[in-house]
């Protein structure tokens, strides 16, 4: 069920559910000095779902995840992971979750096996159970052959895989993944996305933060879009794109003219619903029908002595949803 959030949000009414709830967040807030990093965030995640927190850098995704991982104490609200409160039952929450941080959180001077053994012990594994689990994870992340090598000599993709493996050691019920594909090659990215799907097929609940809409679209049962510390909308992919209706998204690059001037002229055209100026001086338009409007755009540009150097037309997607709701592009925020 689609829900476009308007402030103030009603706690506990984030979505309708059919299955048991793995994560329930109610009115979560966090301030850093005078900055409101997260404001009144509420949502729920059913067991066995993959839910993505999608938003630009600084949207509050990582802060939200940090509170759900008991790393930060919320200033307001509360959340329950497998019915354990993050405020009053942190130890139980920590046992229920696995966290894959955004950065590589491994000891580079230790080997893959030593890292897994250490983290396994920190999660309370001992003896044969630990040994067996370490071997399973090494197999799972494809590092059995390299288990004795220092992590410092691993490739970026190998580190990423081991980084995920550590979070799975104690068989958590809920897995948090904080932008796990940032800065890696396409092949490793593909491997990670496939791993997330595989884990989910095995019943794991995954809360995944990203600013890549393609990842959110591919992986998620539901998507929660955040901006400036708030949840601005949440729902399934299909539900979200309906917000922008049948609008197309056109990215244009122009030269020999002040972009602001042409933006104003284009916005005045019939069929152009929104025009936004990007940081690289390109322009993004939401239009009713790109086929009809394109000749008019060229005509206006020519009239201003401008030259359109590139045109990119996209059908409705999450980027368009974000643009529609915030007036900014996901990548430009």
């Amino acid at each position: 069920m689609l829900q476009v959030v308007t402030q103030p949000q009603v706690p506990g009414k984030a979505a309708n559910h059919n299955g048991p709830i793995a994560i329930r967040v109610e009115g979560l807030g966090k301030n850093f000095d005078k900055i409101q990093a997260v404001q009144d965030v509420s949502f729920e995640v059913e067991e066995g779902q993959i839910v993505s927190l999608l938003g630009p850098n600084g949207a509050g995704k990582t802060t939200t995840l940090s509170m759900l991982a008991c790393l930060l104490r919320p200033d307001s609200g509360d959340a329950w992971i497998m019915d354990y409160s993050i405020k009053t039952e942190a130890a139980a929450v920590k046992q229920a979750i696995g966290v894959v941080p955004q950065e590589i959180a491994l000891y580079s001077d230790l080997s893959a096996k030593e890292n897994l053994q250490f983290w396994g012990k920190m999660y309370g594994l001992r003896g044969p159970k630990l040994t067996g689990r370490v071997e399973e994870i090494l197999e799972l992340v494809g590092l059995t052959e390299r288990q004795k090598g220092p992590v410092a000599k691993f490739s970026g993709g190998m580190k990423r895989r081991l980084n995920i493996g550590v979070a799975l050691l104690h068989r958590p019920q809920v897995l948090y993944m904080d932008e796990p594909t940032v800065g890696i090659d396409p092949q490793s990215r593909r491997n990670i996305l496939d791993s997330v799907k595989k884990l989910n097929r095995e019943g794991m609940t995954v809360l995944y933060t990203t600013h890549y809409m393609e990842e959110a679209q591919e992986l998620s049962n539901r998507i929660i879009i955040m901006d400036q510390g708030k949840v601005i909308v949440q729902g399934t992919h299909q539900e979200l794109v309906k917000i922008v209706g049948e609008q197309d998204r056109i990215n244009l690059t122009v030269s020999q003219v002040v972009p602001k001037e042409i933006a104003e002229r284009w916005h005045a055209l019939e069929g152009v619903n929104r025009v936004s100026l990007n940081e690289d001086n390109s322009l993004t338009l939401l239009v009713s029908d790109s086929n009809l409007i394109l000749p008019n755009l060229f005509e206006v540009a020519t009239g201003l002595g401008a030259r359109i150097t590139s045109v990119d037309i996209q059908e409705p997607n999450l980027e368009a949803v974000f643009l529609h709701l915030t007036g900014r592009g996901l990548r430009d925020s």
């Binding site: 940090s66 991982a69 008991c70 790393l71 130890a91 920590k94 046992q95 979750i97 966290v99 941080p101 955004q102 950065e103 590589i104 959180a105 491994l106 000891y107 983290w119 920190m122 999660y123 309370g124 550590v166």
Partner: peptide, 12 residues
């Protein structure tokens, strides 16, 4: 690095 953050997500 985030190893401390990760450690803080464990029961210690």
């Amino acid at each position: 690095t985030q190893t401390l953050s990760r450690m803080l997500t464990t029961p210690i």
